[in-house]
């Protein structure tokens, strides 16, 4: 048996060779570059903590963080509330809504489309004087003059956030439905027999039991949201305009590295992003743990 166990190494060796080469080494290399002044040509020049002290006082990095959270916040709020309402609706045993498979599929569809295509599509649909969405809204009489959606910080952030929600609510809906179908039907039937109304069923049974899966949605959405790049990159041609309101953290990293050739500083930005991600993950895990303890 002992001998056989050495086969374990053989099974995991390919993974770790690739993992060390293409994941761990680049992370360490990036860490090294974050202490250097490096423009992609020649040798990196070691400059100690200069990049990090710049990062701490860099208002663009903070605004990139703010933008990222703003966009994610809108995205997550609408994504989760629509998905939750849908999930509650379809799980109501008194209503017996039909067509779950159909609706699930249609709502999920936007999630499957390449984000680059979605960005391009909304980039031109949301055009100002010649955008189809403005044309439609004006035809319907909802607005009287065209709105320059992508040229005002507020409407631009809301646009990107809502596009995100549009892309993801179907996905979240599926996950919540999966969570609900994991709840035994007995709970609902017992509640029905006990004469609990809809609201009581929702608050006492559905929501508490959905809590773990909602936290799962929260964490995955947050980690993904902190890395939002494709949409703002393609909608603003990488500039993060208007007024840098769509300049997200990864777009900032990309521009510093690949547009302005400040690889050293971009590496520090990457680590800044990493630290923020760690902090958020820890907070989320902690709060999840604490609330579990309270209930238990």
């Amino acid at each position: 048996m002992k001998k056989l166990d050495n086969y374990g190494y053989m099974f995991i060796v390919p993974f770790f060779i690739v993992f060390i080469t293409f994941t761990i080494y680049p992370i360490l290399l990036t860490f090294y570059y974050s202490f250097t002044n490096y423009n992609g040509m020649g040798d990196p020049e070691f400059i100690g903590l200069a990049n990090y002290s710049r990062l701490l006082t860099d208002s663009y990095f903070y605004s990139a963080f703010y933008n990222t959270m703003y966009i994610w916040g809108i995205n997550f709020f609408f994504q989760l509330s629509i998905a939750l309402l849908l999930a509650i609706l379809f799980s109501d045993i008194r209503l017996k809504m039909r067509g779950l498979n159909f609706f699930r599929a249609v709502f999920y569809l936007p999630n499957l489309i390449t984000i680059a295509s979605v960005a391009l599509l909304f980039g031109i649909l949301l055009g100002w004087h010649h955008g189809t969405i403005n044309h439609l809204l004006m035809d319907l009489g909802i607005i009287s003059s065209p709105i320059n959606w992508l040229n005002d910080p507020t409407t631009a952030r809301w646009s990107v956030g809502l596009i995100g929600a549009w892309m993801w609510f179907g996905h979240t809906f599926i996950i919540l439905m999966a969570g609900i179908s994991g709840i035994s039907k007995d709970y609902f039937e017992a509640a029905l027999i006990d004469g609990a109304n809809r609201w009581q069923t929702l608050v006492k049974i559905t929501l508490p039991l959905l809590k773990p899966i909602m936290l799962y949605v929260l964490i995955t959405s947050l980690i993904g949201g902190l890395q939002i790049f494709d949409l703002p990159m393609l909608i603003t041609d990488g500039t993060g305009a208007p007024q840098g309101s769509l300049n997200t953290m990864v777009l900032y990293l990309y521009n510093q590295a690949f547009r302005y050739d400040n690889y050293g500083y971009a590496a520090a930005v990457a680590y800044g992003l990493f630290i923020i991600t760690v902090i958020f993950s820890v907070i989320t895990f902690k709060s999840m743990y604490r609330s579990n303890v309270k209930e238990g």
Partner: peptide, 9 residues
């Protein structure tokens, strides 16, 4: 081209 300055104008 379509100018679309809005109904007010």
């Amino acid at each position: 081209i379509n100018y679309n300055a809005g109904w007010d104008e």
